[in-house]
């Protein structure tokens, strides 16, 4: 079992998928010799050759659109967009084409593509390199949206995304890329694309989130445990389709829920989860739902970045508010 960081696990999954399936192609800016700006595709050009690892000209719309054509032709393109700030331009291709090709043609043509992009703040990156725009993608019918928060989940979910017969947007939190290293099983095992991961069990309060902020959720849960409060921590790694069942079952047990995400509050995907709690979950709730999120502001440049990011302290404060209710 090799030890791997998240970005190395992504690299293992890409290599495994390419080795197992000749139809898998990698394309994007600087994915070849440079191995991607975060090195996610490191070594793949040398191993699989330039017909399967393609450095593209600088053109995100073309990258996404070319994937639609390749996928319709039976390839399994895995595109890399260098940062989420540059993935917004691909929304036309994803929304108008990738996500609806199957439906438009009633299944005659399909679009098994993956669009990977780093996301999130916390690495003191330049302007436009710290966005958390998952909600822009979760509102596109026909598109799966996945965001792993550990090396093993990154590995298994990416393999599943590549094998899935439909388009997947795969978001990789940059601040987790090298944050931890864990032994991972590089045995080709995929993880389900429609299940939340319960990272920690507890009966007192449910913390629900995804991506970078799972770290703060876990650290808040640890601090709560020291005070005798047991938090259940749920990583919603597959935002679409949403596994509401796992969340509702947890809240049926705890009666309290704090939803955490790095993206802005208003219209964030947390609102969808809150709506589930206000609907089918309402009668289990002992306290109002809390949301700890990025503010409704532009992600500040690095000097103020830490004030924007949801902290463990903010999560703890929200938990205390929920606990203060009956």
């Amino acid at each position: 079992m090799p030890d791997a960081t998240l970005v190395e696990a992504i690299n293992f999954a890409l290599a495994r998928a390419m080795q197992d399936d000749q139809r898998v192609l990698i394309l994007g800016e600087d994915v070849g010799k440079d191995g991607g700006v975060f090195r996610a595709t490191d070594g793949l050009l040398a191993r699989f050759g330039p017909a399967r690892v393609l450095d593209t000209p600088l053109a995100e719309v073309a990258i996404a659109g070319v994937c639609v054509g390749l996928a319709a032709q039976g390839f399994r393109p895995v595109a890399e967009i260098q940062f989420m700030g540059f993935a917004y331009a691909t929304i036309d291709q994803l929304l108008n084409h990738a996500a609806r090709l199957r439906s438009r043609t009633r299944g005659r043509l399909t679009c098994p593509m993956v669009l990977r992009t780093p996301c999130g703040a916390g690495i003191h990156a330049p302007e436009h390199h710290s966005e958390s725009g998952e909600a822009c993608f979760t509102n596109i019918p026909g598109l799966r949206v996945v965001i792993p928060s550990s090396p093993q989940r990154g590995y298994g979910l990416l393999l599943a995304a590549i094998r899935d017969p439909d388009p997947v947007v795969f978001l990789e939190p940059t601040r987790l890329y090298r944050a931890t290293r864990e032994p991972i099983m590089d045995d080709g095992t995929a993880l389900p694309l429609d299940r939340c991961f319960t990272l920690r069990e507890g009966n007192d309060v449910t913390l629900v989130g995804w991506g970078g902020v799972t770290r703060e959720m876990l650290s808040a849960a640890e601090r709560l445990a020291a005070e005798g409060t047991e938090a259940e921590v749920i990583d919603v790694a597959t935002l679409v389709p949403l596994d509401a069942e796992t969340i509702l079952a947890s809240v049926a047990k705890t009666g309290r829920c704090v939803i955490c995400h790095e993206a802005p509050l208003t219209g964030g995907f947390g609102a969808e989860i809150a709506a589930q709690l206000a609907g089918p979950g309402l009668l289990s709730m002992l306290a109002p739902v809390e949301r700890v999120t990025g503010y409704d502001t532009i992600v500040p440049l690095s000097r103020l970045e830490r004030h924007y990011l949801p902290s463990a302290d903010r999560i703890l404060a929200a938990v205390r508010r929920t606990l203060s209710h009956g």
């Binding site: 509050l265 503010y295 409704d296 004030h307 903010r314 404060a317």
Partner: peptide, 21 residues
């Protein structure tokens, strides 16, 4: 962010000043 801060954002601003807690 805007010419004048919308009232809806006032509480978030206050929260950020208070360290988010």
């Amino acid at each position: 962010l805007f010419a004048a801060l919308p009232a809806a954002l006032a509480s978030q601003r206050a929260q950020a000043i208070a360290g988010g807690t």
